[in-house]
Amino acid sequence: MEVETESMTMTMHQSPSVDPERFGVQTDAADRSGRVGGLGRYPRLLGAMLRFSLTHEMAFRANFLIKVLVEVIWLGILLIFYRTVFAQTDLVGGWNQSQYLFFVGCFFALNGLVEAFFLESCQELSDLIRTGDLDSLLLKPIDEQFLISIRRFDWGTVPNVAMGAGVMLSGLSGLDSPPNAAAVAAFVVTFICGLILSYSFLIAIASCSVWMIRNQGLLEIWWLVSNLVRHPREIYKGPWGEPLGWFLTFVAPFLLIVHVPASSMVRVLDWNLVGYTVAATVVVFLVSRRLFRWSIRHYRSAGG
């Protein structure tokens, strides 16, 4: 385990402390050596981060198992809740029990992936700013946003993906007719869009910590966001529900994250909505990246 950690530390420290690209220095030589430059360093670094996080997680195996157990209990509670609800009604917002089950599984898997890859890293951004440790990351010869976003990988929520997939399969098995190839393709595309959208919202919220310095509320805000996305869009009805649903689809498109992949797979395949989701994902990602870069420009190093 020590060797693993050391090799990663070496990779981090062997790299030049100044970003050559930022200072107009060609990195061709580094590309040729395959050590520092080139796009290949991104997956290599990601792999190293994953190994490092796993090593760290396995040092506290009991803690890891408890984290997984809490997630299992939480999924169990969600399933009991919806089972109780569907004992009283056949439809919720036009979704039957199997379709809703698929939706819950989709939410659980997607949220598990976002929390595994990005939540801890984004949460740590405010600490990096407060302590001034962000300096050293900004000097690394790699995209700052990439490095900050993948610093901590939470293996504890990875089983959620498998559990969510299990619930989705269980929902699919209860459908009258299985989805066709087009629906599956639309699901895959919009599921990836959901991931990118979630990440973009997360990094945009985390970027605000540059101004707020103290960003302990990130988890609470994220919890609120996950509260918004874990119900289908059809429940947004009534005099204030409908405008809110419209706002959350077209202005701050949180409702596209889970609703579109789940709905495309088990209910209606609306290509217009799929197209809109892809376009919205691109726009939200670009806006969040601009926001991140703009906030980094306003970062004033604190600490020693």
């Binding site: 009283q88 009604t89 056949d90 439809l91 036009g94 119900h231 429940i235 009534g238 529900g241």
Partner: peptide, 10 residues
């Protein structure tokens, strides 16, 4: 909103 949809569905 969710409970509104549940009551309406039932």
């Amino acid at each position: 909103l969710l409970w509104g949809a549940i009551y309406q569905g039932s």
